[in-house]
Amino acid sequence: MFNWDDLRFFLELARKGRLVSAAQRLHVDHTTVSRRIAALEQAMDARLFDKSPQGYQLTEAGQRLLPYAEAMEAESINVLKDISGKDAQLTGTVRLATTEALGSQVVARHLPQFRALHPGIELELIAETRRLSLSKREADIAITLSRPDSGRLIAWKLGTYNLKLYASPGYLESAGPIRTAEDLTSHAFIGYIDDLLQMPELRLIDQLVKDPNFVFRSSNMMAQYNACLEGVGLALLHAFMAEFDDRLRPVLADEIEIRRELWLAVHEDLRSVARVDAVCQFLTELVRDHQSFLMGRPDSKNHEEPIA
């Protein structure tokens, strides 16, 4: 029989990926974490982690153990709530995966509110255009651009946002007027690197223009944004970033407006974990309360400062 308490060390190392980080969270020395993991592996007669320069990654056996350990953690919290009548303190790490623009310009800018509500939760934000697997525990929660269609996931729609075509006044002055969609064929475009883009929902410019003339591509949305500011070309940008920036102008605003959905997904094994549920609730309310802003419309109740 293994020591149940060793599962705390297993969970923290699985989440943090490094002995020192796990030890800091558990308030012990890193050698203690190593010793407890070794004891658990010996008791189970299985290697649970592979060590690499990037840290500790779960083996196949570790992946199989993870949902059981998380379920035991959730049940221990429920026991405390049921027997003592006290809510367990919300502590630990939650990893959120989302698109770069939403993560950097919406979620990150509202971290003070989240910290005030849940000071014991450490939020890790992965804001980029590649897909992460919730089933493989690459993230605990994901905000996606479409409803997940596979895996043991629970998902619900958060809201919507708009994208529009923008350019700097300098570019429009030098490159010539754009009166119709046909005029776009002679203009320069900024966009994503196709073979690095794992979210097809972001591959949009090709739908607007046949064989667009791309002069700059980047996997980084802020790089595209800044290139557009500098007059490099036209860019399809999030309205909640560009609409409130007086350094940019919408192009064919009455004709070009693309609406995208935001979905929140969480693995069903984690849905009842208190800290994960707390983050889910915060994100759901955040998007709901800032829906007008996400659509690129002013909202006096939740006014947002433009991108600096």
Rank of each mutant, 00 (worst) to 15 (best):
L125R: 03
I126T: 04
E128T: 09
I141Q: 01
R130W: 07
S133I: 08
I143P: 00
P119N: 14
L145M: 11
R115F: 12
E122W: 07
T129K: 00
R130A: 05
A127T: 05
R137F: 10
R130C: 01
Q113H: 13
R115A: 14
A116K: 14
F114G: 07
R109Y: 13
A139T: 08
R130M: 07
I126D: 05
I141F: 02
R137C: 05
P119H: 14
H118E: 14
L123P: 01
F114S: 07
L111R: 06
S133M: 09
R115E: 15
A127H: 05
K136Q: 15
A139W: 02
G120L: 10
A139E: 04
E122H: 12
I143L: 07
S135A: 15
I121P: 00
I143S: 01
P119D: 14
L145K: 03
R137N: 12
D140N: 10
L111H: 03
L111P: 00
R115I: 14
L132G: 00
L111N: 03
L125F: 04
R115S: 12
E138W: 09
I121L: 07
I121R: 04
P112Q: 13
A116L: 15
S133D: 10
E124C: 02
R109V: 13
R131N: 09
L117K: 13
I121N: 02
A116R: 14
R109F: 12
F114I: 09
L125S: 02
E128D: 15
H110G: 05
R137V: 05
I143H: 02
Q113W: 13
S135P: 00
L132E: 03
H118P: 00
A142S: 13
L125I: 15
E122I: 09
T129V: 12
H118K: 11
F114R: 10
L117Y: 04
E124I: 10
I141K: 02
I126L: 12
R137M: 07
S133H: 06
E124K: 08
R137Y: 11
L134K: 01
L145C: 03
